[in-house]
Amino acid sequence: MLILSRKLNESLIVGENIEIKVIKIEDGKVKLGISAPKDINIYRKELYDIIVKENMKASTADIEYDKLSSLFNINKK
């Protein structure tokens, strides 16, 4: 993990087209501004973890459905 220190209004660049800037520091919280192309998804880590977990559950459900449907000769609609 790379660890960097930044002060208010300082930035860092990720790749060639993502900028992360410190906008505000107050009461132990840091507000960041992120400039990135629209085709790049940006999520808070806790939400990303939920998305990954739900996607895994959904893909497992499809596998289970496929197993059951083959046992009972059920065709997907």
Rank of each mutant, 00 (worst) to 15 (best):
G28F: 00
I23F: 09
K53Y: 06
N73V: 13
I63H: 03
A61L: 09
E54V: 13
L68N: 02
D62S: 15
I34F: 03
D62E: 11
S69M: 03
V52I: 02
K7E: 05
S35V: 15
K38Q: 10
I3E: 09
K7R: 11
K31W: 12
L2C: 08
Y43A: 13
M56G: 10
K24C: 07
P37E: 05
K29H: 08
P37I: 06
L47H: 14
K21S: 01
L8T: 02
N73D: 13
K76C: 04
L71W: 11
D66Y: 13
L12W: 02
R6Y: 01
K76M: 07
A36I: 08
A61F: 06
S5E: 09
F72P: 04
K45P: 03
S69Q: 04
D62Q: 09
K31E: 06
K67Y: 07
N41I: 15
V14R: 07
L4R: 04
I42F: 00
N17W: 08
D49M: 05
L32H: 03
L12N: 04
K24L: 12
K57L: 10
L32R: 00
K38S: 08
F72H: 08
I74C: 04
T60K: 12
N73W: 14
I13V: 10
L47M: 14
Y43H: 12
G28H: 01
T60S: 08
K53I: 05
D39I: 13
P37W: 03
I42K: 00
Y43R: 07
D62P: 09
D62A: 10
I74T: 02
S70K: 15
N17C: 12
K57Y: 10
I34E: 03
I34H: 07
M1Q: 15
E64K: 09
K77H: 10
E10Y: 00
L8K: 04
I51Y: 03
S69E: 02
N73Y: 14
M1D: 15
S11W: 05
E10R: 01
E46W: 13
L47W: 11
G33L: 06
S70R: 15
I13D: 06
S5V: 09
P37L: 05
G15F: 02
K24D: 10
K21A: 03
G15H: 02
K45M: 10
N9Q: 12
K67W: 04
I74Q: 00
K29P: 04
S35M: 15
S69W: 04
I50M: 03
R6A: 01
N41K: 10
I25L: 01
E46K: 08
D39C: 10
E46G: 11
I40Q: 02
P37Y: 04
